[in-house]
Amino acid sequence: MLGLHHPGHSPLHRSPAGVKLLTLLAVSTVVFFLEDLRILAGGLLLAGSLYAVAGIPWRTAVRQSTAVVPVTLLFMAAQWVLVSWHAAAAIGLRIAVVVLLANLVTLTTPTSDMITAVERALGPLRRFGLRPERVGLAIALTIRFVPVIAEQARLVRQAQRARGVRFSLAFLTPLLVRTLRMADGLGEALDARGWESSAQ
């Protein structure tokens, strides 16, 4: 779900980030109260066709969404065993619709627009001492560093395999050290980029 912006000029790309986020929120809420499989399947079809409207290649759409497949299957299996196949199908369709739409919002909205929208929405909370810019920065850094940390994890695992360790939780230690060192460097880099002046 931490996919990147897929630039374009479709109506979806041109809609304001705030509108898209609110619509996503509303639709997701509604979807979770729907029971009728035909309506849910219709929703899935509709979500899929919006990708065509946005001009996003199906390959990108699939790549963005595969990460949640295992968890979804797990949920579906649990529902099947505990409730019924109908419940399993419903939960599968609901997750699919919401994930497709959420990814669509990410793909058609530059991160910085999304952050600005979130900052604006949080603006009223400033009275309670919340700094919306900081929340925005936290979101940006998360999106930016998740792939980097994943890459670090891969490198650490490789280095251990090269030394004949097959799998060991010990790999968490170097990963933690690297991540903390990166956080330290990042703090310094933020200072050097004048962050403090814009946050005050």
Binding site: H5, P110, T111, A140, L141, R144, M182, A189, R193
Partner: peptide
């Protein structure tokens, strides 16, 4: 800094330059 990875703050190139 020496390590470019820690200096880049935003997810995409243009956004990173615009950050400051």
């Amino acid at each position: 800094f020496q390590d470019p990875d820690v200096q880049i703050v935003m997810p995409t190139v243009a956004e990173d330059v615009a950050f400051g």
